[in-house]
Design a protein around this nucleic acid. Structure first.
Lengths: 259, 259
DNA sequence: CAGTGGTCTAGACCACTCA
DNA sequence: GAGTGGTCTAGACCACTGT
């Protein structure tokens, strides 16, 4: 009856993927819910198991589902993003709470924050960092590598580069605790109050090291932020490269229009 | 002789992927260069073709290579990113050049910019947009959909939402040309000079519509920017959601530290 | 036309999880 | 031990690109 039934020209793998995606979007498969097994899908659609598997890998690359060996394939639960804001650097926030914005954000989500300085070394900086610092790429600088966790899950890494003639033998150059307030309180001690920031943002897929280091599920990009701190004379005194899991982090800037 | 030769415990597909990735990183396979064919790799490594194919799909999901049907698999050439900056909204830049920052950036790269307003409608906004505008999600607003191209390649989409009581029957509410200067010149005409902006940034994999609309290669994320324009009383008067190809676009903010 | 990637089949064995 | 995903094989046919 009615229209002539158009043949479904879609490939079997696409058809399975489309059906599953629709189920997810309609909410029939809720976040955290379990998809049918590969063997199940294959027999239901009358295909080989590999074809059902291909369908799932499409959804995986879209970041919609996550497979767990021996358990099943699950709809990726939507964790609310941590919103790192431009107020991250606010002096008032720093002194009022005594907490870093990272700790505030994570705590707000009911998770337990942890930050850890994994290494402090002296070495020549990458070319883009040297450029932002306005120095020669051969000149060694202090390099501090920081890891940030929520409930012991790694969520971002920050690598900070500081010219040696600025850090001197201050706490910034040593592996010991930085002391009260954030790293920017130490820069202030040294006569470099933070007055302006520049943040260059890009998104890309993680490389294998980031994939394991940040325990990234497939189908999730990273956000890379190249941060530069400027003092009142607009002189750069510190550059940090942040790499963050894109499924857990976001950015939130509010700023005046200048000119 | 020497050490006992440790067995290579890596899976065949990983081994092939690792070898190819190393070749790319060493520059033996330069950007734009062609990888060996799948059948080639399979026979070289003594595996089935599917295994070589799996290796390539790993590199593809890392955004390192791009496959072209009937031609081969190629190392993804690195196009320089367009850096959209906070100066995007600068009044001075607007009046000095008469060009939008998008046009300036694309032209700087030796490509031909094109912007096109694809539709202007009136409808209820998405929940997050209504929230930023401080209005009820049921209230219809003006919706303007803009597409941006470089050399006729789509690079980003922007969907702008404007409360009806602000747009009125001004050019903002019609499909006609907006006139000299950018859209912000029109808001200024209406008594809404842009004084501050808020930009909320996230990264994710494209959904199927974005994939086709922006002609996205696999293994490339999108950057989503939820932009809010505020007037001198910090009243929001416009929200735009930008979705940009992550392999062609980046952001560049410079701002003062407030407080 | 030959060569390429895209999709699929029908099996197989392994590693992991959970009752 | 039953059920799950992870990997692999050895084929097949198709669609697309080049000459």
């Amino acid at each position: 009856m009615s229209d002539k039934p158009e043949a479904d020209t879609r490939l079997p793998s696409r058809r399975i993927a489309d059906d599953l995606r629709a189920s997810i979007e309609r909410g029939e498969l809720p976040p955290g819910g379990k998809l049918p097994s590969e063997r199940d899908l294959a027999s239901r659609y009358g295909t080989a198991r590999n074809t059902a598997r291909e369908a799932i890998s499409i959804l995986q690359s879209e970041g919609l589902v996550i497979a767990q060996h021996g358990r099943g394939v699950f709809v990726r639960p939507q964790t609310p993003l941590m919103r790192l804001g431009s107020n991250r650097y606010s002096r008032r926030l720093r002194s009022e709470t005594g907490l870093s914005p990272f700790r505030i954000e994570v705590t707000k989500q009911g998770r337990v924050p942890k930050a850890e300085c994994r290494s402090v070394t002296t070495e020549p900086p990458p070319a883009d960092v040297a450029d932002r610092l306005g120095i020669d790429p051969q000149t060694p600088v202090i390099r501090r590598e920081n890891w940030y966790f929520a409930d012991d899950e790694p969520v971002q890494v920050g690598v900070t580069y500081i010219p040696v003639d600025i850090a001197g033998d201050s706490p910034l150059a040593s592996e010991k605790k930085l002391g009260k307030g954030s790293i920017y309180a130490r820069f202030e001690d040294l006569g470099y109050p933070i007055a302006r920031i520049r943040e260059e943002i890009s998104a890309r897929m993680p490389n294998p090291e980031e994939m394991t280091g940040l325990a990234m599920p497939p189908g999730v990009p990273v956000i890379e932020v190249l941060h530069t701190s400027l003092d009142e004379q607009r002189k750069p005194f510190e550059v940090t490269r942040f790499v963050m899991r894109g499924d857990l982090n976001g950015l939130d800037y509010e700023m005046p229009i200048e000119d």
